[in-house]
Design a protein around this nucleic acid. Sequence first.
DNA 1: CTTAAAAAATGAACTCGTTCAATCTTTTTC
DNA 2: GAAAAAGATTGAACGAGTTCATTTTTTAAG
Lengths: 208, 208
Amino acid sequence: MAGLRAKQKADRARRILEAATALFRQQGYDSARIEDIAEMAEVSVGTLYNYYQNKGDILVATVAMEVTEVLEAGSRILANPPLHVEEALRALVETYYDHSLVYLSKEMWRTAMAISIQQPDTPLSRRYTELDGQLSAQVADLVAALQARGAVISTVDARAVGEVFFNNLNQMFIEFCKVEAMTLEELKARVAAQHRPVAALISSARIV
Amino acid sequence: MAGLRAKQKADRARRILEAATALFRQQGYDSARIEDIAEMAEVSVGTLYNYYQNKGDILVATVAMEVTEVLEAGSRILANPPLHVEEALRALVETYYDHSLVYLSKEMWRTAMAISIQQPDTPLSRRYTELDGQLSAQVADLVAALQARGAVISTVDARAVGEVFFNNLNQMFIEFCKVEAMTLEELKARVAAQHRPVAALISSARIV
DNA sequence: CTTAAAAAATGAACTCGTTCAATCTTTTTC
DNA sequence: GAAAAAGATTGAACGAGTTCATTTTTTAAG
């Protein structure tokens, strides 16, 4: 039997992640004690540390799953984007934002982002950073796709402009998570207003 | 005598900040123990907590001072900016980056940024966020100034474009702090490459 | 100058994340 | 199938940030 030990491992890893996510959502990251997570997952504290390097890693693992879904949602936009530059960008940005808040609260995002900045060399932080890179590349891909279809001026550096768009929407998302009172709609409106002039400038023609 | 108590307070606050900064620089934020900081500042641990809400606050206080200096250096650029858009932006961005690393290490920056994201409601985090807003406004002011001088197309929304530039340079600075191997020169080059196409698009005329 | 009140300083005790030597379980070997 | 080796689990102990009841110092009042 090749599988008993492996099966137990997978089972425990899943239980820990589920317990942690439930408690983080329920009572917040700081208030959820490792001891409580371990108890809910029916393992000891020591075992929990065999599966995750530290408390933050558990959270970042959850976030990485959510970001993966965001990427997939984004690729569906890229498959058939609106031809108008501003609209296409807006569609992608709003997809990102909508899919980012399905499982995670603002507080969980704040903690996860803080960890990925503060301890960038832990494996899961690296994964998070890598996913960020993929999101950035996806925005650049959108600009390039629009360029290929003639909607964006051909001389524009799609990669550079895509990175600027992404860094802006990312920074605005941080801002959004910092201000508890800010709504998703406000966030979308502010980012749309920031992107509008740049989108207009890179557009080949104005659609009337 | 109105001043004995006030004088002692100011003196202790200063000693604590100096001790903490010295130890953070010397051995890193995490390794510097509150007990050591208190001892070096010649106060008790409890007293230290009368002056700062927590360990992070002490660091954020240091960072706030540095950002203030960055803002001042930036305003000197704004007083007499190059007329060419790309050059002017580049001058401002490089001033920001150069002045950001005088007293603070990458690790200290990472910690400070993480704290300001994770606990945005502590007084000093608010101060940090406010200073960030001022930096963003300063970039927008530069674009507006260039517009007033005819170097930037008059129909461009200076505020929106300024915010996009700032969010980009800010995000890139985070990236820079995350990657220990990345040099200041690489950072500057990458940001310049990102800004170049946008700067070109908003320029009124090409200078030959 | 004495005394009462207010403000500040103190450090032992507490909390919670993390570690690690001892123990138990599964797999492999013969 | 027994014994040895490898792999996992466990929870008590540890370390560092934070709190708070007590003590000390400063100011104000009489």
